[in-house]
C-alpha cells in the first residue's frame, strides 16, 4: 500500500521534473516545478516530516515560486526561441547526466540501514529545539543572509532615474516602472 503510494508520488515527481526541463514555455516549467514541490511535500509527509512538508509548500511553492512566476509575468516571457544549439559542450551533457545518475545509483542502490526504533522526529518541537539550541548560530547566520539578500535584491532591482537616486524603500515603484516598461515592450511587439 505505502509502496504503491510512493511509486505514484515518485512517478509524478519524475514526470514533473522532466516537464520542467522539457517545456519550452517558462511558465509551464514553473508550474511543473510547483507540482514537483507539491509531490515532494507529500513525500515528506510519508517520511513523518510534517513541519518540513508544510514549510516546503509555504516557502517553495508559496513564496519562491510565486516570485518566479511574478518575474516571468513581469518580463512577459512568452516562449523560448527554438534555435539549434551550437555549444559543443552540450553534446556531453546528456551522457554526463547519465553517468552521474549511474554513479549515484551504484553508490546508493545497496544502501541499507538497520531500522532504528523511536518516535518520528519531524515534529515542530524537535526542530525548534534543534534550531534554537545547538544550531542557533547557523540559524542566526541565515537571518543575516536573508537580510543581505533583501538589501542586495533591492539594490540590484531598483532603477535610478537619470542619475538621481530614488528612495530605496520605494520598491513598489520599481514594480510600477517595470510594468510600464513591459507594456511598452508589448506595444513594440505589436
Amino acid at each position: 500500500m505505502e509502496k504503491v503510494f510512493f511509486i505514484i508520488i515518485a512517478s509524478l515527481s519524475v514526470a514533473a521534473a522532466l516537464s520542467v526541463v522539457a517545456q519550452r514555455n517558462t511558465l509551464y516549467s514553473a508550474f511543473s516545478l510547483i507540482g514537483l514541490f507539491g509531490c515532494l511535500a507529500v513525500a515528506y509527509i510519508t517520511l513523518q516530516a510534517h513541519l518540513i512538508a508544510a514549510i516546503q509548500v509555504i516557502v517553495y511553492a508559496g513564496a519562491i515560486m510565486v516570485l518566479f512566476v511574478f518575474v516571468i509575468m513581469l518580463l512577459n516571457i512568452r516562449e523560448e526561441e527554438l534555435r539549434v544549439d551550437r555549444n559543443r559542450l552540450l553534446i556531453f551533457s546528456v551522457p554526463l547526466g547519465g553517468l552521474l545518475f549511474g554513479l549515484i545509483y551504484f553508490g546508493l542502490k545497496n544502501f541499507k540501514i538497520d531500522e532504528i526504533k523511536g518516535a518520528p522526529v519531524g515534529t515542530s518541537e524537535a526542530i525548534g529545539q534543534g534550531l534554537f539550541s545547538k544550531y542557533l548560530l547557523p540559524f542566526e547566520v541565515t537571518s543575516i543572509l536573508i537580510l543581505l539578500a533583501i538589501v542586495g535584491s533591492v539594490v540590484l532591482a531598483r532603477r535610478e532615474k537619470d542619475g538621481d537616486i530614488e528612495d530605496i524603500e520605494d520598491d513598489e515603484q520599481v514594480v510600477k516602472v517595470s510594468m510600464a516598461e513591459k507594456s511598452k515592450v508589448e506595444e513594440t511587439k505589436e
Binding site: S93, L96, L99, L100, L103, I104, G107
Partner: peptide, 13 residues
C-alpha cells in the same frame, strides 16, 4: 556549469 558538473562527477566517481 558543465565543467563544475564534470568535476562533481569525477569526485563522485
Amino acid at each position: 556549469a558543465v565543467f563544475i558538473f564534470v568535476g562533481a562527477v569525477t569526485v563522485l566517481g
